[in-house]
Amino acid sequence: MLTIKNLHAQVEDTPILKGLNLEIGPGEVHAIMGPNGSGKSTLASVLAGREDYEVTAGSVDFDGTDLLDLDASDRAREGLFLAFQYPVEIPGVSNLNFMKAAINAKREHQGLEAISAKDFLALVKEKSALVELSGRLRDRSVNEGFSGGEKKRNEIFQMAMLEPKFAVLDETDSGLDIDALRIVSEGVNAMRDAGRSFLVITHYQRLLDHIVPDHVHVLSDGQIVKSGPKELALELEAKGYDWVKEEIA
């Protein structure tokens, strides 16, 4: 599904990713953990196509296409999705118009007709129920006046609407209370299937109790320094990141 080889990326002139390798197969859930500032969000941004980040070396293959060759909107139409760590508020753009434009952009790319109003509303109803996003929120301007938890639920709602092949969730658990965490996780779990892969970025192990990963990786200073099964997350929680650093030193 996704193969990252020797990825180097920088902002302005500061290198942040320093030779990152990662292979994610279809249907797999991978977790990336790591201390603040290790480059987790940078990896997410580079994959999604944010232009502030310059890739200086390496490659990213997404189901046979060179991901780095596409602009952000083409990546999304090819089936990539990023749930933002900090979702953006866009006053005046209604959440639903936004989703309709996004769905139709994807459908056009697939050679399909624009979605009918009826089908669209049915889809909205189904997917918003999944993350318990009330009509009141759903119909407002994109993220405007949403609480932190509501923003994260809106990210998962959008993911469910767009049905990507591969989704990156960047600290979707941060700022969530236990109820919201459960709702978000159930939304993600409902979407797990053999053809869809996830990269779950998190700082804390608790999310991984709900979304159980197949593999866990530790990111430190722009490189993956340790990989293991899901139990690695528990070990990290107990021993802290310094333990990994000492181990590799």
């Binding site: 999604a48 196509g49 944010r50 232009e51 602009d71 952000a72 909107s73 990546r75 999304a76 139409r77 999705f81 990023l82 933002f84 979702p87 953006v88 866009i90 753009v93 936004f98 989703m99 434009a101 996004a102 952009a105 994807k106 790319h109 994109v142 959008q158 767009l162």
Partner: peptide
């Protein structure tokens, strides 16, 4: 960027 990241 947020809008574009959804395929628009």
């Amino acid at each position: 960027f947020y809008l574009k990241s959804r395929g628009i």
